[in-house]
């Protein structure tokens, strides 16, 4: 089985879908001649042509809005927004337009499109490039929000996203793009949405995360292991749909939960996780659900990001406190 990085797994999924389905087309900034700023689409324009792998004018709202029109014309658009933080300039086309497309037309039209967006901190990028704003899209019904954390998941979830009849926001953790290699099957496989992944099992505390924060929790769990604290790490994989059962099962197993995300604390998706657990499994808890998140501050300059993002030390401290409670 081939070893792939996360960005190679993304590219592999895109290539397979372009080969399989002539309706699939990619559109975005710099995705053709350059192959994308992260090279996620490297070589795809050469293989599939400039009509199917399209270098777009620099206009995020038009990339998303045109994808709706292309879908009406019978295509399956996979749009790349260069960074999730640039969706600020397309938000009015994503939340209110893509999200409501099916319902506004009462099922006459659908938007079987994917919006891919690299995001997240830790790569010392300029302003807006690191914004973790995934929770904003959970508040816009009609869109599925997918947050892979590993090469295997990135490929399987992206294949699922392109084939899903609903619009999908597919957030790719740029910090993990080339961090690890993992065995990834060469052929097609899909991972269903709404099924959380147990990354590791332990009976003392449950760490809940998605995307790059999963990697952080894995490092925290390894450190906790050395202290004699056995942690379960649960990767939600998709925020919409949310695997409520899997979340409750993981919370109930240990009775102690820490949810970790790179987005700011207040009204981050961690709040939804905490609320869901206390509603569904209150009497199985040994203490409050704890949250480790970025501060309620705009994403800072590169020199400050290490103190802005959640750290292994903070996750470990929260887990220790949870176990003591």
């Amino acid at each position: 089985m081939p070893q792939m990085t996360l960005v190679e797994a993304v590219r592999d999924a895109l290539r397979l879908e372009l080969r399989r389905d002539p309706r699939v087309m990619l559109l975005g900034l710099d995705i053709g001649r350059l192959g994308g700023v992260f090279r996620a689409t490297d070589g795809l324009q050469a293989e599939f042509g400039a009509e199917r792998v399209v270098d777009m004018p620099l206009a995020e709202a038009a990339i998303v809005g045109a994808s709706i029109g292309l879908a009406v014309a019978g295509f399956v658009p996979v749009a790349e927004i260069q960074f999730l933080g640039f969706t600020h300039q397309a938000f009015h086309q994503i939340g209110p337009q893509v999200g409501r497309w099916r319902q506004r037309s009462r099922g006459r039209f659908s938007a079987p499109l994917v919006i891919r967006a690299p995001f997240g901190g830790g790569i010392r990028s300029p302003e807006f490039h690191s914004d973790a704003i995934e929770a904003q899209f959970v508040q816009t019904p009609g869109i599925k929000v997918v947050m892979p954390a590993s090469p295997y998941d990135a490929k399987g979830l992206l294949l699922e996203a392109i084939r899903d009849p609903d619009p999908v926001l597919f957030c790719e953790p740029d910090r993990l793009y080339r961090l690890h290699r993992q065995e990834v099957p060469a052929g097609e496989y899909t991972i269903p949405f709404g099924q959380a992944r147990t990354v590791r099992e332990g009976d003392d505390v449950t760490l809940v995360a998605w995307s790059a924060a999963v990697e952080l929790c894995e490092r925290a769990a390894a450190q906790l292991d050395g202290e004699g604290i056995a942690a379960t790490v649960l990767d939600l994989r998709t925020l919409v749909p949310l695997d409520v059962e899997g979340l409750v099962r993981a919370a109930t197993r240990t009775g102690r939960v820490v949810v970790v995300h790179e987005a700011p604390l207040s009204a981050g998706f961690g709040a939804e996780v905490a609320a869901t657990i206390q509603e569904e499994a209150f009497f199985a808890l040994d203490g409050p659900v704890r949250r480790v998140a970025a501060w309620d501050a705009p994403y800072p300059s590169a020199a400050l990001e290490a103190s802005y993002l959640p750290t292994v030390a903070r996750v470990v401290a929260a887990a220790r406190a949870a176990v003591r409670s």
């Binding site: 709202a61 038009a62 998303v64 809005g65 045109a66 994808s67 709706i68 029109g69 292309l70 009406v72 014309a73 019978g74 295509f75 658009p77 009015h92 086309q93 209110p96 337009q97």
Partner: peptide, 14 residues
């Protein structure tokens, strides 16, 4: 004006 990018995309697709 939100319909106009849809129109452009639809026409491009057609």
């Amino acid at each position: 004006a939100a319909q106009l990018p849809h129109a452009a995309g639809l026409a491009w697709g057609l």
